[in-house]
Design a protein around this nucleic acid. Sequence first.
DNA 1: TATTGTTATACTCTATAACTATA
DNA 2: TATAGTTATAGAGTATAACAATA
Lengths: 157, 157
Amino acid sequence: MSDTPESPGTPAPPGSPESPSPADLMDQLARVAAAYYRHFAAAATVHGLTLMQGKMLSLLRRPRPMRTLADLLGCDASNVTGIVDRLEARDLVRRETDPADRRIKNVVLTEDGERTVRAIRSGLMSDLTALERLDAGDRRAFGALLDRVFPDPATTG
Amino acid sequence: MSDTPESPGTPAPPGSPESPSPADLMDQLARVAAAYYRHFAAAATVHGLTLMQGKMLSLLRRPRPMRTLADLLGCDASNVTGIVDRLEARDLVRRETDPADRRIKNVVLTEDGERTVRAIRSGLMSDLTALERLDAGDRRAFGALLDRVFPDPATTG
DNA sequence: TATTGTTATACTCTATAACTATA
DNA sequence: TATAGTTATAGAGTATAACAATA
């Protein structure tokens, strides 16, 4: 290995009592976000799904209008058509026209889709064994810090 | 807003002293990773760059072989060719053949590329204002927890 | 008129396989 | 032989603009 990806900036030396700077934390968040998606994509690939298809399924704990899915995925509404098309072709989701507003199509998990979502979550969880090793105090602290840095709109507003 | 993305699982009620479960933290990490990339992509878009192009530039604090870039991005080597092509066409990076091993091409930031990287990082940092508001103790605790859950290969090995 | 979802289009990202050139 | 990088290909994700159906 002739080219190690050493961490950027000037992190504190091992065993030092110094705190990382905000910029150091930003770099660490970049690494963590990349690692999370690497694990998630691997868990989705096991079931022949892409990252986006896996994300989509994960959003369907309850039926959602196409439009809402676009907002939650952070992509244009036109993309959702194709992603849902491919999931529907594999019988993982269904489109159901909303009786109250016939413009809206709610996307619903099939039984196969529910099984797949559970399997992806379970596979991901078994990759994140470090979470299981945190004691209750660390979990509370970690959750609180994550929430401070990226406030949850559902919790906040 | 008729369709709120309420958090999954059974999170502790507001003000409760209860700790989130490992599964709750996994969901929170999903939310955080998505939020990080939403901010990062927005910072890259300001400069007319895609998420992958922005990621690529961010890896080039020092020159890197194409192969290493593929490993760091977690994609096939053949993709790097195209991504670097597009960045090179915009004079943000250069390819330089390694004198010691003429098979290797090191990708180097141009001055324009360096400016762009700084601008992206600065734009991202100003989106993550919550990081600036953490005191030294919280930063140290947050960094340590992030490292426990996603160990840094550079620090660990 | 406004909103939901689809289609058409063009571009980017992606993995696979086959290739060139270096080692 | 093995490795670094490229090309060709096909499929998936992406935004934009134009459109139909519904409100």
